[in-house]
């Protein structure tokens, strides 16, 4: 099948159309003219339907074709292209606006996406930094605690030793004092002199017994 509308350019189409109109008209007019002559010959009355009065046909058809052709030419050449041009330019304009809006929307979306990405990045960075510093602080604390523990344990040990020494010294002294008091008391009460060293041993043994009881 042939490509249809491409066959006849628009202008030629219009001219062709007008020529065809004129041809049909003249043919019809000729026919109607014959008919008119006949009807006029047969009966000249006009009492019936005016629509069936063939004598008026040529003039009606003639003026129909004249006005129709003028209208067609005017519309096809001038009015319709103008209106379609306006409609097209409006459609283009609207499409343009829509395209621009679409482009702007895409740009805004891109910006939004970039912003989101930056925000996400900042957030992850911040959390990394937080974790890092937290770890560092924890590490330092444990290190410092370790040092502190070590030092304090040494110091505690020394202090304990000192206390132990002091305690044993004090105990020594106290047992000496106790022995002296005991011997003196024995001298005064019973009147016997006692060996202080013996008293000391007694007290020590007593102390030992006490400890065992405890």
């Amino acid at each position: 099948m042939r490509e249809l509308s491409a066959d006849i350019p628009k202008k030629i189409f219009h001219s062709l159309f007008c020529v065809a109109l004129v041809f049909i008209t003249s043919a019809t007019l000729a026919l109607a003219g014959d008919q008119t002559a006949e009807t006029a010959a047969h009966h000249g009355d006009t009492d019936g339907l005016p629509q069936l009065d063939f004598s008026s046909y040529p003039s009606q058809i003639f003026w129909l074709i004249v006005t129709f052709t003028v209208l067609y030419t005017f519309f096809a050449r001038k009015t319709l292209p103008e209106i379609s041009g306006v409609l097209e330019s409006r459609r283009d304009h609207i499409q343009n606006d829509l395209d621009t809006a679409e482009k702007l929307r895409e740009e805004a979306e891109d910006a939004h996406r970039a912003y989101d990405e930056a925000l996400e990045k900042a957030r992850s960075e911040a959390s990394n930094m937080f974790i890092e510093s937290d770890n560092k602080i924890k590490e330092e604390t444990t290190k410092k605690l370790q040092v502190f523990y070590e030092r304090s344990s040494v110091e505690i040990k020394a202090a304990e030793e000192k206390i132990e020494n002091a305690k044993s010294e004090a105990f020594e002294e106290m047992s000496t004092i106790a022995a002296e008091i005991a011997s003196q008391a024995a001298e005064k009460i019973i009147g016997i002199s006692t060996d202080i060293n013996q008293a000391k041993t007694v007290i020590k043994s007593l102390h030992k017994n006490n400890k065992k009881a405890a």
Binding site: L29, A37, S56, S59, Q60, T67, V70, L71, F74, T79
Partner: peptide, 22 residues
């Protein structure tokens, strides 16, 4: 010729219609 092509009331209103629409 012998064909009557008078400008009638019908033709008048065709012309009026054409002029108005144009």
């Amino acid at each position: 010729g012998n064909i009557d092509l008078s400008f009638t009331n019908s033709a008048l209103w065709m012309v009026i219609g054409a002029v108005l629409s144009i």
